[in-house]
Computed example of a mutant assay.
Amino acid sequence: MGGTEHLTVERAGATLVLTLNRPEAKNALSLAMLVGLHDGWLEADRDDAVRSVVLTGAGGAFCAGMDLKALAGDGMAGEEYRDRLRDDPDLHWKAMLRHHRPRKPVIAAVEGHCVAGGTEMLQGTDIRVAGESAVFGLFEVRRGLFPIGGSTVRLPRQIPRTHALEMLLTGRPYTAAEAERIGLIGRVVPDGTALDAALETAERVNACGPLAVEAVKASVYETAAMTEEEGLAAELARGWPIFETADAKEGARAFAQKREPQFRRA
């Protein structure tokens, strides 16, 4: 199992837990963190025993985004990983889920600051739960910067445009309650329990047929920009083969026998 000094990788049953681990900097992005994230997403895709991923942060924060001290010239932490960026110039975008969509469901467990690059990375996750004191926002314009992690494209597709533009153009912070109200996150829980809630959700995902789960996720995203007619056709093309799998037959058989199904990804 991989990981770096700023990104820990653990297994919780069939869930891979990726933890941003730079709490002294509110988990601001570093090269070590980006390399660890990149490799973690690939591990989740590669390992069929992994059915879901939870992304969280250590020390009561999710991610404060770009390290502005590094941007000002002090150097981004983890210079020893720079050769990985040279080998793959898109590595950081894949790490932040801008250029990569994992095939397994990704559940974000947010505590504390989830701002700038943290909010951008959040938009690449599928299910989002946050502690009630969590803070969200895209602060880039306040620093004369551009939220280039995908927010000008993704955010207006995920929440109403007026809310997306207010967040993008004012750079103001949002409470967890407000983030839930506008649809940026799905659920608010008591502080300190976001990870537990995310893991509970992951367990529910893990109990479902993995082929069905991955096909449903893929269908949602691939049809998002299609017309309804195109989308319905694509849904049929992806969905019908699932009914022919051994897992589908096992699901029906388990229901009839009043027992839990034993899915085999077949």
Rank of each mutant, 00 (worst) to 15 (best):
A215S: 15
I182R: 04
A177D: 10
I148L: 06
G13Y: 02
R157V: 00
F146Y: 15
R84K: 04
Y81T: 08
L184M: 06
E178K: 15
P89E: 04
G251M: 06
L165A: 03
A233E: 15
A108N: 00
S151K: 04
A130D: 00
R187Y: 03
L91R: 05
P160K: 04
A72N: 15
A202F: 13
E111W: 11
D83R: 11
I185N: 02
P102G: 10
N206T: 02
G192N: 11
S30Y: 10
A61W: 14
F255T: 03
L199R: 08
A254G: 01
M121D: 02
V188T: 03
E260V: 05
E5F: 06
T175Y: 03
L34S: 10
V188P: 00
P173E: 01
R82A: 12
Y81F: 12
D90L: 13
A14L: 13
R265I: 04
R98M: 12
K26G: 06
D45W: 11
V213F: 03
M96H: 08
D48T: 04
E5H: 06
L122A: 02
F136V: 00
T19H: 09
L184S: 02
R161N: 02
E180Q: 15
A233P: 14
L165V: 05
C208Q: 09
G192T: 14
L55H: 13
R142F: 09
G78C: 08
D90P: 10
V50P: 09
P261E: 05
R51Y: 00
D196F: 09
R259C: 06
M226P: 11
E214R: 14
V50S: 04
D247G: 01
A77P: 09
L168A: 07
Y174D: 00
S219V: 14
E132G: 08
R51G: 05
L7Y: 05
D247M: 00
G60M: 10
A58Q: 13
R142A: 11
L29A: 15
L168K: 03
H6R: 10
H163L: 04
Y221D: 03
T201Q: 10
L184H: 01
F139A: 06
D45V: 14
A207R: 15
T8A: 14
A14S: 15
Q257S: 12
F62C: 00
M167A: 00
Q158S: 01
V9N: 12
V188G: 01
R238T: 11
A194F: 06
L55D: 10
A202R: 14
V188Q: 01
F255Q: 01
R204G: 10
G57P: 09
E140G: 07
T223R: 13
L42T: 07
C63I: 06
V129L: 03
R103K: 10
L7N: 07
L7Q: 12
I107W: 01
A14F: 12
E132T: 08
G192P: 11
L138D: 03
G144E: 08
R161A: 06
V17N: 13
L71D: 11
D196Y: 08
R181H: 04
